[in-house]
Write a protein that binds this DNA or RNA. Structure first.
Length: 397
RNA sequence: GGGGAGAUACCUAAGUGGCCAACAGGGAUGGACUGUAAAUCCAUUGGCUCAGCCUUCAGAGGUUCGAAUCCUCUUCUCCCCA
């Protein structure tokens, strides 16, 4: 399979496909790697598998000798980003953004070779940080209100009488300007980024540069079938522990499997079809193991799968249970659960107990007033809330 | 700058003086079922020293025996006009 074909597998839209063909051909003829840009805003602490789709595509380019140009939108992140989730992200402080950027890089490094010789990492504060207001106005003068209003997200919010802030209009411009500054040949992004990618093309043209090719990737859906997003809690973080990642993928809905195979693994099409024809449970197991293996290694993936079976099919205890020490005392069960960090309030604990979701030393407890005697130093109890929250509590003087 | 509408719990959204910790739906959590899928059913969804008490309806004051509901000011949003 040549690069172009592989790109097609991940792409939902390619703006300038013929141009890309030519660029790839001349790049290999002249041994001049293409500069492939991908931008990400360090607005949260982690990157999830949804972000990983374009990053995978980026790696593909890298493997074929092209140069990934990773942009950390540390400037844009501080503004907050209108990503169609209707509520604006809060602006962040410089420290927060920097901390996020660090974890982002570390996580992206699991998928992409960040060696400076093979990848360029840039922060857009590098150029935005030294622009003054007049420069900013000049930038704003390069587009029009009508053009910005074409953006779906803005239109939607206007229709719903929700606020669209002025600075949000500048966001696509900033992203476009990034492309100018790094002289991108190609830019990758999620499906929802098409507008912004186009903006880069347009701005490069105005600068007399060759406009970048834009490639968008389909959005990977979350485990519940909605768009993967931290605010829905349906995401799988790249920094998730192996067993956690495995478990989350196992809870993926059956309908989502096909696209996950396509977007989150490199398994060949025939193999995927074969798996999908079999029992969904098994196909999902392969899916989960494949993804976990890529990040945590084969061994960890196997172990995660075994642990999963042990815990959820045989209902055994997990192999590792968090420990917690508490001062010696008699504890009312709800308070014990709260102190052990199993729940956030005693009211919450009471509800769980009444709902039959709490086990003390593996026995279901339904009595809210139960007291637990931990007056002897060294005494221990095992607490369980729901299917997956466990704590081993140990009393100390 | 002028006029109008609005801000309720995680989200949508009812409630216009006591029956309101606040209808309903979504989501979430727990339970049953199961393949930690889907569908379905049940329960829960502010806090606590929990048959009781305390704090919530944008914020600050006020009226009242009593306010999410009435009044004043403030902040924020939307719409129309300029």
């Amino acid at each position: 399979m040549n690069l172009m074909e592989e790109i097609q597998r991940y792409a939902s839209d390619i703006v300038g496909a013929e141009q890309l063909q030519k660029m790839l051909a001349s790049a290999s003829a002249e041994k001049a790697p293409l500069r492939v840009k991908f931008g990400i805003d360090p607005t949260f602490t982690d990157v999830h598998l949804g972000h990983a789709v374009p990053i995978r595509l980026l790696r593909l380019f890298q493997e074929h000798g092209h140069l990934p140009v990773l942009i950390l939108g540390d400037g844009t992140a501080r503004l907050g980003d209108p990503t169609g989730r209707n509520q604006q992200r809060p602006p962040l402080s410089q420290e927060e953004v920097e901390a996020n950027a660090t974890t982002y890089l570390q996580q992206i490094g699991q998928l992409l070779d960040l060696d400076p010789a093979r990848c360029e990492v840039r922060r857009n504060s590098e150029w935005f940080g030294r622009m003054d207001f007049f420069d900013c106005l000049q930038l704003a003068a390069r587009s029009t209100v009508a053009r910005m209003l074409e953006r779906d997200d803005f239109q939607k919010r206007m229709r719903e009488n929700l606020p669209v802030h002025l600075h949000e209009m500048l966001y696509p411009l900033m992203q476009g300007y990034d492309s100018v500054m790094v002289r991108a040949d190609v830019e990758l992004g999620g499906n929802d980024q098409l507008f912004n990618l186009h903006m880069g093309r347009q701005m490069q043209e105005r600068e007399g540069m060759r406009p970048q090719v834009c490639i968008t990737t389909p959005l990977l859906l979350g485990t519940d079938g909605r768009k993967m997003s931290k605010s829905y809690g349906n995401h799988v973080g790249l920094n998730a522990a192996a067993h956690d990642m495995y478990g989350k993928i196992m809870s993926l809905s059956d309908e989502g499997m096909e696209s996950w195979f396509a977007l989150a693994t490199r398994l060949p099409e025939e193999r995927v079809q074969e798996l999908l024809a079999g029992h969904p449970r098994q196909a999902k197991d392969i899916l989960a193991q494949t993804i976990v293996a890529e990040i945590h290694g084969e061994t960890a993936a196997k172990e995660a799968a075994e642990e999963f079976v042990r815990r959820f099919q045989k209902k055994d205890l997990p192999s590792e249970i968090p420990q917690q020490t508490l001062p010696c005392a008699r504890y009312a069960l709800p308070n014990l659960m709260k102190d052990a960090g199993l729940v956030s309030s005693t009211s919450d604990a009471r509800r769980l107990i009444q709902g039959g979701g709490v086990r003390l030393n593996q026995e279901v407890v339904k009595d809210v007033r139960l007291e637990v005697d931990l007056t002897t130093s060294g005494s221990e109890v095992l607490l369980q809330a729901g299917k997956r929250r466990f704590v081993q509590v140990r009393a100390v003087d």
